[in-house]
Design a protein around this nucleic acid. Sequence first.
RNA 1: GCCCUCAUCGUCUAGAGGCCUAGGACACGGGCUUUUCACGCCUGUAACUGGGGUUCGAAUCCCCAUGAGGGCACCA
Length: 530
Amino acid sequence: MIKTRFAPSPTGFLHVGGARTALFNWLFARHHGGQFVLRIEDTDQVRSTAESAAGILEDMLWLGLNWDEGPQVGGKKNGYFQSMRLAIYEEYLQQLLKEDRAYEAYESPQELAAMRKACEAAKRPFRYRRNMPGRSKAGAGPAVLRFEMPHEDITFQDEILGPITVKADEHDDIVIRKSDGFPTYHFAVVVDDHLMGITHVLRAQEHLMNTPKHLGLYKALGWTPPHHAHMPLVFNMDGTKMSKRDKTRAARQGLAAYASRQKDPDYRLLAERAAVPVEVIAAFVGKKNEDTQLAQKLAAAIGVELPEIDVQDFRRSGYMADALLNFIALVGWSPGEDREILTRDQLLQLFSLGGIGKTNGRFDRKKLAWMNGEYIRAASPDVLLQALNGFLAVSDYPLAGANEELKRDLLEMYKERTGTFGEMAHNAVFFFEEPQYDAKAVTKHVITPEAQSFLSQSLALLEPVHDWTLAGLESAMERVLSLGEKRGAAAQALRVALSGGPVSPPLLQTIVALGRDRTLSRIKANIRPT
RNA sequence: GCCCUCAUCGUCUAGAGGCCUAGGACACGGGCUUUUCACGCCUGUAACUGGGGUUCGAAUCCCCAUGAGGGCACCA
């Protein structure tokens, strides 16, 4: 039986790249009726956090990537956090030690750095090997355990890339137990993959050069290694790595633009408005702080959108999980036909390793937004409402205060014209708050004599209506649209008066959703005495 | 620097020697529809990195060059 795993390290949120790795593993296992394991690789005591692990689980579940074994599933309590499995690793560490395949090494990090630097200066690659000259003797510092890599070429068959060979003199005796007693990633991953019965390791290509090391360990431990497949990486549209730094960078750019635009060079006004101390903002701008939460907060205060990097970001922007999954699946994989919109079931049915390409891809947010729009348009009202509520729970828009019926109506009128729930919620703010009037639109569509006349006449036509429904307003609206010489001439005046700008859903629906009081008072407010 | 991998429209990709005057999707341009914006429909621009081979025939196979990416941690 096929068994795959996704093994994130809990040092941050679930990144879209990680989500894709998880998805492919999940699809591969499920397609073949196998099992999917989730394992938390928290062997880095400094950077791992419990909150991060919890966040990753939550994001996995939001995406619908459920696991057969892992945290909260599969019986063995805590058995899927590597930090809880130290005794297991120690057992195999001792085995290697006893068989003389592992040995202690005593160089301090500083010494190693100096050795690397010396090699670099001599234009020679640095390789730590047991038989190299000048190794430190046992001394004051705590020791690490290194694995003596075989002195032979290692070749393996990558299920995506084909045969990969690394020559004997390229090997390095990797550290397998750190001085804090924790195993390194290389060791823990091999032991766990073996013990958990993983048959296929599907991971990002950045791990390609790790595989020979792992194969060396499998051999030394006397185990049959799993199949390996390395998938291409995903980058930003400009070819840079998708990293959380993209968010802080975008926030800084936004802040700089804000400072000159709003004449707030010291961010004193912003500090007050965002309730963030001036010093904190200064530290952030001065790159002394890479806190993405802070970046998010400041960006929100100045109305700047940060690029989505983590699954949570996409969730907060109002993407649907299925759309995100569908899009991510298509970066690096293709079903081999001209098909793009694929349901979860279709993905499951069509997925195969053979469909995974070899070339790195770029993350085209425009296409994702289009695809999400397709999902929004295709979803049933119930599914859509549920997804919208999920979005509203993790974001902050006045739309959250609407009752379910109004949400349904707004969804109905916005689904044809929106890519994300965030975009919709943003555009629909005028239903809940007084509109921010766009000066240009007002000049062009509201204060002209003709427009003023249209507004007065519209008011006269609408005010007598008390049955404020689509049916009740239909004939009055029909007459409003007939005002002027050209049909629809009055529409823009009304649209700007009601929404604040030149763009809105169709007027009739807008007026119904807005309600009688707001509609009439906004029209009145825009009729100016001459 | 050394090692590894990759290479089709701006982007994601189809393509497993003749079906390719290279197909689809996003984006972009034009048009239709239209109370705005969208949606929808029609339509256009746009690619096999270069050079050598192999072959009757190459986007597809081989070699070299170039370019891009990854790796070279007591991070994973």
